[in-house]
Write a protein that binds this DNA or RNA. Structure first.
Lengths: 166, 166, 166, 166
DNA sequence: TTTT
DNA sequence: TTTT
């Protein structure tokens, strides 16, 4: 279908160290689980509740896979951008089964490590991160040259409109 | 876990009309499947391939549920913003089974109809759309008043930097 | 225009402490700048480059404003979800000027603090975070009990939990 | 700054046909304005209001630029994913001025045409769309064959498909 | 299985 | 099961 979008954005923590599997053709997949959680107040009882969601993440991009192996471990906090993919498989009884993963491939996927330097723990240098294809990204210099001085935008004006909070 | 994000963004088409289920307590869920698809060229053979992904969508927000019932039908193209939720259940043999849905709840979910007026087909008025909580959104008038005239930003300057496409 | 989306997602660090301005009608805006940065390799010279982008953030949601005042400060790392808004104003010479902000309003905006406990530094308690309207978000218990019928997941069960729409 | 995200997602309509500018070094930029709009009810007066936001979009990716030139025109509805970039420049009086654009570069940018066939109007073929780097995206065949062992999904199978990394 |  |  021309004209579709399939995007997942997660910020969460790894439940375990990543696992890597290599394939005969030289490729690899790195996979791990990421927890996200949300809290809310029961609107009837006022009781505080929360619920944790676990996401299966699979990385097929070589670059991102390397970063994941090197920098991610149990407890790491990470920003992930990938897509939803549901695999169909058969269990031992021959029944159709489905498993849904958040998949990072070469295109339009990113991973950003969110652990502080100290949070990173182990030996490595701090803050590893990568974005696919970063290396060939042509970039512009948006900073024009010339004379200087001049106005900053005025602060929000409180008295112009009645239906706004200011 | 304080500090997590669980977000899914889809643009795709409904495979069938939405189905509604009401509950004893007055609530309701509207559910349907959405197809997204992507094409690519096999890097070895050059052959064109494509793959369609089906997403189970469940709407628990009353406002969005109403809009879905009224405006969405088989074939509709829609933008959806929700979150991933995986339900655990047991099959007839007592085995754990999992099903992952894209869920729209009251918070931080949106739905935007993308069918053209004519694409809408059926009886209803065209272009319904809704965003949760729209009604109480305080808005500012960002348009300040005063004198006029003056410069627009210059076009991108082609000669400033060598590693850019301009 | 029915049918549009205007969404910005940032993960970055505050350049300074947030500033608050209150308004006659009781509302307030909290504003600050957030830096994002990216690095790349010049495709011609192989030289490493990087560029920092500064974003003006303005929070009009009372709940998020309170959290920002309480937990964010210079250097804080934060996830932000808001929308683009461009204000037009006139400078001292009466020329039209434009300023573009990332704005968080009541709807479809979020803020998630990404500082580790230690990264939080100063006096405050750790990890405050908030998502608009969290308090009244009806939630479902996706964990069904007992046996089910078939190869497909059971429908949402209406009677398991009192605070949910099913 | 290792560890940042700068992402804009828009769904809106072009206000005019795209404009292209070529550069001495062979590159090009395609630019146009996109309108998004939202409506809300004034919480005090109950009056319906709406506000249109205009976004300056600049495409530096060759592939996406070609698609924009070929398929986008005044009125086209489009999904865009890019990043915020603010240029600084000087006006005729030498004052610093800033202009913020939604920029699509090679990495992590997408564009999806959302016009129906009929909505497309003019002469062109229907529904062109593109995603950067699509051509070299290795893809897996998630459809496993034959029986599996247990209650868990089988691991990715390395030998099913020749063009995939597993 | 994570995190607060 | 949709769409191109």
């Amino acid at each position: 279908m021309a004209g579709s979008v399939n995007k997942v954005i997660l910020v969460g923590n790894l439940g375990k160290d990543p696992e890597s599997r290599s394939f005969a053709n030289g490729g690899k997949v790195v996979s791990f689980s990421v927890a996200t959680s949300e809290g809310w107040k029961d609107k009837n009882t006022g009781e505080r509740k929360d619920k944790t969601e676990w996401h299966n993440v699979s990385i097929f991009s070589d670059g991102l896979a390397r970063v994941a192996e090197q920098y991610l471990k149990k407890g790491s906090k990470v920003y992930l951008e990938g897509q939803l993919e549901t695999r169909k498989w058969q269990d031992k009884d021959g029944n159709d089964r489905y498993s849904t993963d958040v998949v990072l491939r070469n295109f339009n996927s990113s991973m950003v490590l969110l652990d502080g330097r100290e949070g990173g723990g182990g030996g490595g240098g701090g803050g590893g991160y990568e974005r696919t294809n970063r290396d060939d990204a042509p970039r512009g210099n948006y900073q024009n040259r010339g004379a200087a001085t001049g106005g900053r935008p005025p602060a929000f004006d409180a008295d112009l409109d009645d239906d706004v909070p200011f």
